[in-house]
Simulated assay, not measured.
Amino acid sequence: MAGDRTMTWQSIRDTIMLRIRDRTYPPGELIPNEADIAAEFGCARATVNRALRDLAEEGFLDRRRKAGTRVIEAPQRKATLDIPQIRREVEARGQAYGYRLLARETGSAPAELRARLKLPEAEATLYLESLHLADGAPHMFERRWVVLRTVPAIAAADLAAVNPNEWLVREAPYTHGGMEFHAEPAGAAAAALGCAATDPVLVMERQTWLHEAPITYAREHFAQSYRLCLGL
């Protein structure tokens, strides 16, 4: 990643967060200064400053003038829902992100999903299938339903150019939601992930709401090489 002028402060933040989690930057230890980090990533110090400031605000770093930036030994955190952005996750691992829109259609959602989101039978949803890549290899296969009544603008969005995960995070504010994780056979996702239908994969189910209005439900199947890292 050194010398990559396209690095954003979010990418740098996510990379540093991974280094904190894997103990490259151990608890209580100083991390490199802004100038050294900027030189590593080939970016401006202001970009690094913004990344470190965000991690400090989240309770992972202690920043003091003339004393440097230190990893907090026991960060005090509260449980929150943070919508994962797949591109950032892939790029934070030093891999090239890719994306393909595989299917797009408008219609009524399946009965099970209508019950979950409390939708009437005639409710129009946008159904999407997407494949996210890391260094050209399958990373995650996603099936998603978006409630058009709540997010009408997505009907005109170019989702072949920007993935629905990023579009919704940017354009559709939410008030609450939930995530569930479990393992199951790859099933219909196997062809996209390049594995057998009977192979177990990690599945994440996520739904978000704007007050009482449902926004989206996503079902994400991750490649078998995927490792889930959660911050506490």
Rank of each mutant, 00 (worst) to 15 (best):
M1S: 14
A2D: 12
D4P: 04
Q10W: 13
S11W: 10
I12F: 03
D14T: 11
T15W: 04
T15A: 09
I16Y: 00
R19D: 10
R19E: 06
I20G: 00
D22F: 06
T24I: 14
Y25N: 03
P27K: 11
G28P: 03
G28Q: 09
I31H: 01
I31V: 05
A35C: 09
D36F: 06
A39W: 03
F41I: 06
F41W: 08
F41Q: 02
G42C: 06
R45M: 07
R53N: 15
D54G: 05
D54T: 13
G59I: 03
G59A: 02
L61F: 01
D62W: 04
A67H: 15
A67D: 13
A74G: 08
P75A: 01
Q76T: 13
R77G: 12
I83C: 09
P84Q: 04
V90F: 00
E91W: 03
Y97G: 00
G98S: 08
L102I: 10
R104M: 12
E105R: 13
G107Q: 07
S108A: 15
S108Y: 02
R116D: 05
L117I: 09
K118R: 15
L126W: 01
Y127S: 08
Y127W: 10
S130Y: 01
G136V: 07
P138N: 03
F141G: 03
W145Y: 14
W145G: 03
R149M: 06
A153R: 08
A157N: 05
A160S: 15
A161W: 05
N163V: 01
P164K: 02
W167S: 03
H176P: 01
H176Y: 08
G178W: 12
H182C: 07
H182D: 09
H182T: 11
G187Q: 02
G187W: 01
A188S: 15
A189R: 01
A192Y: 02
C195L: 05
C195W: 02
T198G: 12
T198L: 14
D199C: 14
P200N: 09
P200I: 08
L202R: 06
L202E: 03
V203T: 04
R206G: 07
R206D: 03
Q207L: 13
T208A: 15
W209A: 02
E212F: 07
A213F: 06
Y217P: 01
E220I: 03
F222R: 01
F222C: 07
S225V: 10
L230W: 04
L232R: 12
L232F: 10
